[in-house]
């Protein structure tokens, strides 16, 4: 008897498993495929359902129009500009958060200073204050600091949060004491120890956190909605919302679908290409 059959995974049940998985994949991936299809058809085809299941002839024209600002509702801002804004925000949040949280975790684990645990708790408690529960007062702070419609305003409030610090603290605590002692015997200061020993050891964690934070930054909604007024500072998600009116017939759906495609593609590529670190990081860090 084969090992597979021993625990009851017979060929029949494996076929059923494949069948269910294929249905699952269709349900999960179909909406994204559908956006791609819609982005290659003319508005007339889109408005006459059902939409064909294969790409249409308008791909080049639709993408060209959207890139050069063919959508009137967002003041003619091109998709290129929106992608740039979103990239700046996502990278700013990812790198900013990694740097800031590594620094604070390094201080908390490898130094002894007064109020060390108070600092840790002050950072930890921010977990319980998501932006949704402090919308108005945070907005007021942004106005007072003149950060409305700036990249700093889009990035800064989102770079401090406890998750990164908690992750790095947990990881740093697994570093054996001997490593630090040996480094100190060799005359290495905090910077040398960090650069030559800790950083190389942390690379997997950094890669994992990078994917999670990049997606987090790219998909932000409430915050960019509040701190951007001008069309040229919008992220692509907010611009999409402004382009669409479900009640009204003159939404340029073909261009909206191009914009959706371009809004979805970069984060999907990041997740798929960095899948190994992402899956490991997600499952390990969030637990």
């Amino acid at each position: 008897m084969a090992e597979g059959e021993m625990i009851g995974v017979k060929t029949r049940s494996r076929v059923i498993a494949h069948f269910l998985l294929v249905i699952g994949v269709i349900v999960v991936a179909f909406p994204i495929y559908y956006v791609f299809i819609a982005s290659t058809h003319s508005i007339q085809t889109i408005l006459r359902p059902p939409l064909p299941l294969l790409p249409g002839p308008e791909l080049v024209e639709n993408y060209g129009d959207a890139m050069t600002g063919g959508v009137g509702r967002i003041g003619g801002v091109g998709v290129g500009r929106l992608l740039w804004n979103t990239t700046v925000v996502a990278l700013g949040i990812a790198f900013g958060k990694i740097v800031i949280s590594m620094a604070s975790a390094y201080a908390i684990v490898f130094f002894r200073f007064p109020l060390r645990m108070v600092c840790f708790w002050l950072i930890f408690i921010t977990l319980m204050l998501p932006v949704e529960v402090r919308i108005l007062p945070t907005y007021k702070v942004m106005v007072d600091l003149k950060l409305i419609d700036t990249y700093a305003g889009l990035i800064l409030p989102l770079v401090a949060s406890a998750t990164g610090t908690l992750l790095f603290r947990q990881f740093f605590m697994t570093i054996p004491n001997e490593l630090l002692e040996a480094a100190r015997v060799d005359g290495a200061g905090p910077w040398r120890f960090f650069k030559d020993i800790l950083l190389p050891l942390s690379l997997t964690n950094i890669a994992a956190l990078f994917v999670i934070l990049f997606i987090y930054g790219w998909t932000q909604y409430l915050w960019p909605l509040l701190v951007t007024n001008s069309n040229s500072m919008n992220t692509i998600v907010i611009a999409l919302k402004k382009m669409i009116s479900f009640a009204d017939a003159d939404t340029p759906w073909n261009l909206v679908m191009v914009t959706s495609m371009l809004a979805i593609l970069p984060p999907i590529l990041v997740v798929v290409l960095m899948q190994r670190w992402f899956v490991k990081g997600l499952v390990e860090t969030e637990k």
Partner: peptide, 14 residues
Amino acid sequence: RTLMIWPYAVAPAI
């Protein structure tokens, strides 16, 4: 798995 993780990258609003 590769096909299953796509929606994670899609913003809720989208």
